[in-house]
Structures are given as C-alpha cells and as structure tokens.
Amino acid sequence: MSKKTILIVDDSLSIRQVVGMALKGAGYDVIEGCDGKDALTKLDGRKIHLIISDVNMPNMDGIAFVTAAKKLPAYKFTPVIMLTTESGADKKAAGQAAGAKAWVVKPFQPAQMLAAVSKLILP
C-alpha cells in the first residue's frame, strides 16, 4: 500500500520540520510550502490526502490559501487542518468558512496532531 501524502504549509521552517518529523515517523509522505502562494504551486494535480496550514503567513495567508485550494476541483474534498498560534473565535470561524476541518493551536503535541490527521485523512 502506497504512502499517503500530506502538504504542510508554514512560513516557519522549524514548524515544518517538527510537523514533518512527526508525520514521516508515522509513515506519511510530506511535501512543504513556505506560504500560501508557494503551497498553491504544489497543488498541481498530484494526489494529496490532507493539508496542514498555518494562518499568518507572508504573501498569502492560510485562510486565503485554503479558500483558493478549495476552488480547485482536485482538492475540493481534501481535508484541511489549520495549525496556528491564533485561538480567536472569529479567526476559527473564518477558517471553518474557508473549508478547514480542524483548528490546532500551537504548540502542538505530535501524538494529538497524528490523531487528528488519522481522523481526517482521506482513505
């Protein structure tokens, strides 16, 4: 059975490394985007089973990225987890409206992140 692929979008390299390590350790393939604009270039038709995105990023923030991603037919149903320092209700509502399925506040525990991933990831 081939590995499932997860796209990590965060302007912080250290966060991408930590998330990537946790996911690779659990047997997932990982691709990275350093902001929303860069991540959109990774949505080139390849199969992506889940997206984990930060909110506050330069060039294109996470809400705008998810909104744009959801307009692409190939990724319309790809589940999205927002991973951010933000915990305000209005931001969460914006994330939900954009199409996110979960909101994880940093700092995260890898085990809990993996539990959320396994709950939401496409079969």
Partner: peptide, 10 residues
C-alpha cells in the same frame, strides 16, 4: 503559558 494542542474539529 501557551495552551498545549488545543484542537477544535469543525
């Protein structure tokens, strides 16, 4: 202290 891994499912 920063809250640890607050997860909300929509």
């Amino acid at each position: 202290a920063a809250a640890s891994a607050e997860i909300t499912f929509f």
